[in-house]
Amino acid sequence: MSQPPNTENQDRRSDRQDIPKWARIYGQNRSLPLVIYSVFFLLLSAALGVPSYLAGKSYQSGHMVLFWICVALCVLAFAVIIYFSLCGQKLIDRIARHFYRIEGEVAVSPAKTAWTPSAGSALVAVVALVLCLFGVAILNEYGFIPGIEGGGESDRDTRYMQPVSAVFGVPILIFLALQMRPAVGWLALLWPGLYGLHAVLIVAGAPIVFTGKWNYLNMLIPTAGYGLLTGLVGHAYSRYALHRLKQAARSGLVDSDLLKESQG
């Protein structure tokens, strides 16, 4: 059964929009740099956290050789963190470029709207986020953040750290995601969304609080963990977009065939 002419035209218009649309979605969701950054962050946290924990245990049990080995590992991990802070962006770019070398580079232009603040505001927001996280850690250290009633000392420490950090962390992450539009897609909002949801669930009393020696996961999962998850979801979506783009770009264009037909 043949379609009426208007419907057919409409279909062809959507065909011609497919290639730019999927190219744009692919470009916006190339999130391997975020995945690499989150993996580095998790590895560095483990590299600093595990020796610190073992150093404490070995000191308590009097194993001084193990203690000094752990201290040396902590110093090494700290040096790597400093190096990563200074040269991390270049390193991440190089690794991401290596992974993308076969499929090439795509860039979607940054937003040029009236409300866009001056250049570097994204960096200012990142610095603000890091400083605020340090601030929460300090407030927590001095007991300004309430804890679990009847819990142990270590339990009391971190229960509400994440919800308090979410009060400023979520707006800053949303600001960052909007600031980078349209260079990044709407999926970037998944990170603040999950961060906020995690905070709400903790305040509501959901059993998602880590205790004892797993205390540090209360902050690590919402920060690096959800960042990694967002990066992986974005990466998966970019694979799908690239598949659709290749499908659309490699298939014969109906419009060109029609023209040849009309001229023939």
């Binding site: 730019p20 744009r24 470009g27 580079e105 770009a249």
Partner: peptide
């Protein structure tokens, strides 16, 4: 042209791998 109209820049490798 259609690919370029959807993004800001692409490189040569991207066009080769996408268009086959």
């Amino acid at each position: 042209m259609m690919i370029l109209s959807g993004v800001d820049t692409v490189d040569f490798s991207f066009l080769v791998s996408t268009l086959g």
